[in-house]
Design a protein around this nucleic acid. Structure first.
Length: 879
RNA sequence: GGGCGGAUAGCUCAGCGGGAGAGCACCUGUCUUACACGCAGGGGGUCAGGCGUUCAAAUCGCCUUCCGCCCACCA
């Protein structure tokens, strides 16, 4: 074995070994209970980032763990066609050739996107494999593949037939750059500096005017009313009157509406039904017309008169200028406005009246809410449930039509003669109303999230009644980030319940965001991105996976830095070297391991405890605790103590014990490897394959071995005694360090302990000698004599003494140290005594706590006596 | 404006009722026959502030301050 672990030589080798052996593919005829997950499909345009790395590491840990626990596991992978994102990428590519998609035409453009997908779309799949993801690649899906397209049509038709999809003229969010409608959640709102403009609207037939405050003066050209609060006394006399819209000259009514706030601005609100959500609602209830003054490109329309063709922002300037000239502009005021931007391209979104398709969400949302309230689906951590409820309770209807080309085309057909709408899987030959043959399909495509919402069952074969669907739906677990709870999780819940009559997943584990070391979001523009594939290259997949796992506490964002990954690479290397020692120095035999010494019993007990804690952590999705347990056991217990003691038996002990120890080393290592395989699959497989056959259960891969179980034996008492021995060793090392005692000096160590414990320690004095270089003996009585020439330290209810005669020591210093220790001990004792003399404490605290406190107090007064004695002797010596 | 999270060692975080822990960083010693990606030792904290509940509070409740996030139709 090489001196250091080389991840480059092992990782790809094992991944293809697993794949070739079909370990990722479940057996449908198995009697094992099923466990299923669908991957959150990354965008085909995507490249693996740390968020993906965390997301897939967690899923892979669960998948591997469940497989080893005896489940028939399906982890179904795939990618998302990502409508706008992908279209943007290909359009950019076209732009380099000096082309636009319009010039190319719809069909050619879509061909081009498919070509792009074939060429580059597999990049992210390759990257997921580099991460070790144990997905069943034989079932890989794409949201635009044949089966999923069929599922989309089928779902659309069902919703339409049930009256849950409708088409109509409504105000929607429009991105003038992407030239498409957006759903409410596709708009990112941000507080930005803006202005409030005060504009005068003359009253018809009077010399007076009403002043309106607006943040968007360019929309005034589309005003069809101005409104005041009905109770606003300042404006009572204007009720029922008309105003003349400046610059346009249109006669518009002054209406009253309770929505208008008296305190805001002037208390007069302009109503622009075609470009504002609230105005649209008010206009609907008051039967006001809507006039569109901004078009789909963000330019002023013909209705804008002299401003026609201007961009909406330059129109704003021009309009203010024109008003100023007419004396109708009052003033501006700095004002923080809420601005909506497109989540894809960050362009300021324009609320626009337009004809779109909508899903009626209320009945669907009610079911989705109920299912979580009834515990049919559980969020982990639970805190995310609140956000889910809030969103479902407040959502407007979902605008699902997009005016782009890449996506699922809406399966609706229009008769060009009578306007009849037909919703079908295929193009109808003639109109079912007027028999006309002039049939046209709707130009729009569906929101990408519409197909994503069907993902948990469409990928399993729906609408066909497949065996996959029967076995694996509902899926067991969904692992995803909090940022798409609304985009995706809630919509899968709605669609799953509507179509399958059953929740899409039993549990949803929501993980945090991976940030950089200073807590900033990673982004290309900030230049603080840590590329997971760079990290894999430099430190290995296992190191990256372990780091992400160790740092992912529930409900908290993860701050990641390269140094962390490097640090955990050291841990991976530690496993390698411990194994190397075990394989090269040990002399295992076929005889098992009896009899056991105290350190054997201790490490086996520790192993048992670790298995128990590890399994509990995994069942509760506490991945950081899982990682921490593995780390501590291997390094802090197994390597630091057991292997160090094992060296005694291997290099200095008798042959029998050497064999015995070698066997235990292998036994513990083998179990440890299985325990940690879910998080660090590559190194565990590599080492496991080097373990002698009789220590493994006849499997050809650790991947398909069983997750370790606790052994039946219990050595609790021995393990406790061993912990005392550890403390004695540490104390001797402390003294050596404090008094600068080097290896050349012969050390005599006395250990004072009770008879019971002393007997046990006596049997294994070689441990103490081996680990400290001291000649040790056990004395079963209280330490009173020899204080002068001996440093004495208390260890629990024991004491350790080391000879220091002949060593040059600073008496002043010794006295000072002793006095400080005495002071501290006295303070602590007085605190404990106060507690013990408190009647309430004695009567109300549990027995156990009282006993513990009494014991500590006893120990402390012993310690105080010794310290006092020590100070006395040292002071007398001075003269 | 509404909601959610966080504030504990220099940094990142565990602990969530019985007188504070880890990893990293730092300091000291050490290339000892698995590993210097190592070994041994060490320093370092009024657990954000205040009030309350309790025999007992980092831990439970309330308030304040500061950070982060989500949602939102006062133009």
């Amino acid at each position: 074995m090489e001196k250091a672990y080389n991840h480059k030589e092992t990782e790809d080798k094992w991944y293809s070994f697993w794949e070739k052996n079909k370990f990722f593919t479940p057996n449908l005829n198995s009697k094992k209970p099923p466990f299923s997950m669908v991957i959150p499909p990354p965008n085909v345009t995507g490249s693996l980032h740390m968020g993906h790395a965390l997301n897939n590491t967690i899923q892979d840990i669960v998948a591997r763990y469940k497989r080893m626990k005896g489940f028939e596991v399906l982890w179904l992978p795939g990618t998302d066609h990502a409508g706008i994102a992908t279209q943007n990428v290909v359009e950019r590519e076209l732009a380099k050739e000096g082309l636009t998609r319009e010039e190319l035409g719809r069909e050619k453009f879509i061909e081009r996107v498919w070509k792009w997908k074939e060429e580059y779309g597999n990049r992210i799949i390759y990257q997921l494999k580099k991460l070790g993801s144990s997905c069943d690649w034989t079932r890989e899906r794409f949201t635009m593949d044949g089966g999923l397209s069929l599922a989309v049509k089928e779902a659309f038709i069902r919703l339409w037939n049930d009256g849950l999809i409708y088409r109509g003229d409504y105000i929607i969010n429009w991105c003038p750059r992407c030239k498409t409608a957006l759903a409410d959640i596709e708009v990112e709102s941000s507080q930005e500096n803006g202005k409030l403009y005060y504009i005068r609207y003359p009253i018809e037939g009077e010399k007076e005017y009403l002043t309106v405050a607006t943040t968007r003066p360019e929309t005034m050209l589309g005003d069809t009313a101005i409104a005041v609060n009905p109770g606003d006394e300042r404006y009572l006399k204007y009720h029922e009157k008309y105003a003349i819209l400046p610059l346009v000259g249109r006669r518009i009514p002054v209406i009253t509406h309770p929505y208008v706030e008296e305190e805001f601005g002037t208390g007069v609100l302009k109503i622009t039904p075609a470009h504002d959500f609230n105005d649209f609602e008010i206009a609907k209830s008051c039967n006001l017309p809507a006039i569109k003054v901004i078009d789909e490109e963000g330019k002023m329309t013909r209705e804008a008169g002299e401003f026609e063709g201007l961009d909406r922002f330059s129109a704003r300037e021009k309009i203010i200028e024109a008003l100023r000239e007419k004396g109708l502009f009052e003033r501006t005021e700095n004002y923080e406005i809420l601005l909506g931007r497109c989540y894809r391209c960050k362009t300021v979104v324009e609320p626009l009246l337009s004809k779109q398709w909508f899903v009626k969400t209320k009945p669907l949302a009610e079911e989705a809410l109920k299912a979580v309230q009834e515990g049919k689906t559980v969020f982990i951590p639970e805190m995310w449930t609140g956000g889910y409820y809030h969103w479902l309770n407040n959502m407007r209807d979902w605008c699902i039509s997009r005016q782009i080309w890449w996506g699922h085309r809406i399966p609706a057909y229009y008769c060009s003669d009578c306007g009849n709408i037909m919703v079908r899987k295929t193009t109808p030959k003639k109109c079912n109303n007027c028999k006309s043959e002039r049939i046209k399909q709707d130009e729009d495509v569906l929101d990408t999230w519409f197909s994503s919402a069907l993902w948990p069952f469409s990928t399993l074969g729906w609408p066909k009644k497949t065996k996959d669907l029967k076995i694996f739906y509902p899926t067991s677990l969904l692992v995803t980030g909090f940022d798409i709870i609304t985009f995706w999780v809630a919509r899968m819940m709605m669609m799953g319940l509507y179509i399958m009559k059953e929740v899409p997943f039993r549990k949803v584990y929501i993980h945090a965001l991976v940030r950089d070391a200073t807590g900033q979001k990673m982004s290309k523009t900030k230049g603080n991105v840590i590329d997971p594939l760079d990290m894999v290259e430099k430190y290995g997949t296992d190191a990256l996976r372990f780091t992400l796992t160790a740092m992912t506490a529930q409900g908290r964002d993860t701050k990641l830095s390269e140094e962390r990954i490097e640090g955990y690479k050291h841990f991976i290397n530690k496993i390698w070297n411990a194994s190397r020692f075990i394989f090269t120095a040990g002399k295992p035999s076929e005889d098992g391991f009896q009899p056991l010494t105290i350190e054997d019993k201790w490490i086996l007990t520790k192993l048992n405890e670790t298995i128990e804690k590890t399994e509990r952590a995994l069942e509760k999705y506490e991945f950081n605790i899982y990682a921490q347990e593995i780390y501590n056991f291997l390094w802090k217990e197994f390597c630091d103590w057991y292997i160090e003691i094992a060296k005694y038996h291997i290099y200095k002990g008798d042959e029998e014990k050497c064999k015995n120890t070698s066997n235990i080393l292998l036994y513990v290592l083998e179990k440890f490897l299985r325990l940690s395989h879910p998080v660090i699959p590559f190194i565990t497989e590599e080492i496991w394959n080097r373990i002698p056959e009789n220590f493994k259960s006849n499997r050809k891969s650790i991947m398909i071995a069983d997750f370790p179980q606790k052994d039946e034996y219990e050595f609790k008492t021995e393990a406790e005694v061993f912990e005392k021995i550890k403390k004695i060793v540490t104390t001797i090392r402390n003294i050596k360090s404090d008094y600068n005692i080097g290896e050349e000096r012969e050390i005599f160590c006395k250990i004072w302990a009770s008879e019971n414990i002393g007997k046990e320690i006596n049997k294994v004095l070689y441990i103490i000698s081996h680990l400290t270089g001291a000649n040790a003996e056990v004395i079963c009585e209280k330490p009173t004599k020899d204080i002068l020439n001996t440093v004495i330290r208390e260890v629990d209810d024991m004491a350790v003494g080391i000879n220091i005669e002949g060593l040059i020591i600073n008496r002043e210093n010794e006295i000072k140290k002793a006095q400080e220790a005495l002071k501290k001990a006295e303070e602590e004792l007085s605190f404990l005594m106060k507690k013990l003399s408190n009647e309430n404490f004695i009567s109300k605290a549990p027995e156990e706590v009282i006993r513990k406190t009494e014991m500590e107090a006893g120990l402390l007064s012993e310690r105080i006596k010794v310290l006092q004695e020590k100070i006395k002797i040292l002071s007398e010596m001075k003269g």
